[in-house]
Design a protein around this nucleic acid. Structure first.
Ligand code: FES
Ligand code: FES
Lengths: 134, 134
DNA sequence: CAATATGATACAATAATAGTATCATTATAA
DNA sequence: TTATAATGATACTATTATTGTATCATATTG
């Protein structure tokens, strides 16, 4: 069981890498050399981050990416939602339909509590908080 | 992102079903009728629970399954470990090897904290606590 | 206008999840 | 003691999610 998939993980690292750079614009090549992430995969990830307005991009010679938000405003929960979809820790299915007992299911209530806490904690983890110490 | 897979979910429900029954021994057929879980899949799940000593089984005519432990001693965390493996919310890989920065990675530290809490909460959810209200 | 970036998109490989099917074994009841 | 009704063991299949690759289009700059 894992919380964070590879693409989310790469996104976090790439964003940290960009945030730590002095230059405004950071190229894919630079990040690849920094982090040794497969180039094509990284490109796809950065393009998604761009579409989701976490990054700004510049095409053409000398182009690359820059953070669209200050590092303290980019939280893990955002990245997870982008790459892993909505966080629904308990999604009880009953013959592929939604569960009819959902409204008074004690299990669901308990899992929902956990979910709330997890989300709150993930929200508190930002790019800023990750790069702080390096 | 989900916390609980289908087999864990089915296991929980089956155990609840058995726990709620007055008869000591509950047959697969009974559970299938109760929960409408695919029979073969359920059988596999129950056999695993039996091997893992969460259930006792009786072969032959009139056979079936019975809880091997009191419902308050069967917790969600046990079932998840059985069906979903060890809970490692953050498993950072670097070219398929373990991450060399793991020892002073701030992200890992933060995720580990979440993990601790989640595990504690999951431990507290038992079959007993789920069936209580029905 | 050529070189060098990213944008868009389709495709492929692998792994995890979810489920099925079959035969063996054991216990009971007629 | 034998047919029957249950689980045990195990191998197989299907589907979905994850983890990538590859290619061509488009924009920017020198
Ligand atoms: S939400 Fe379906 S049984 Fe709990
Ligand atoms: S554990 Fe690998 S970078 Fe954090």
């Amino acid at each position: 069981m894992k919380l964070i998939t590879r693409n989310t993980d790469y996104a976090i690292r790439a964003l940290c890498c960009i945030a730590e750079q002095k230059e405004d614009i950071v190229s894919v090549d630079h990040i690849v050399q920094c982090l040794e992430i497969p180039r094509s995969f990284l490109r796809k990830i950065l393009q998604i981050l761009n579409k989701e307005r976490m990054l700004n991009s510049c095409k053409g010679r000398g182009g690359g990416f820059a953070l669209a938000l200050p590092p303290e405003k980019i939280s893990l929960i955002d990245l997870m939602r982008i790459f892993q979809g909505p966080i629904k820790l308990n999604e009880c299915k009953f013959k592929k339909d939604d569960c009819p007992y959902v409204s008074d299911c004690l299990l669901k209530k308990k899992i929902d509590e956990i979910e709330k806490e997890v989300i709150a904690k993930l929200k508190a983890i930002t790019i800023e908080s990750i790069i702080k110490r390096r």
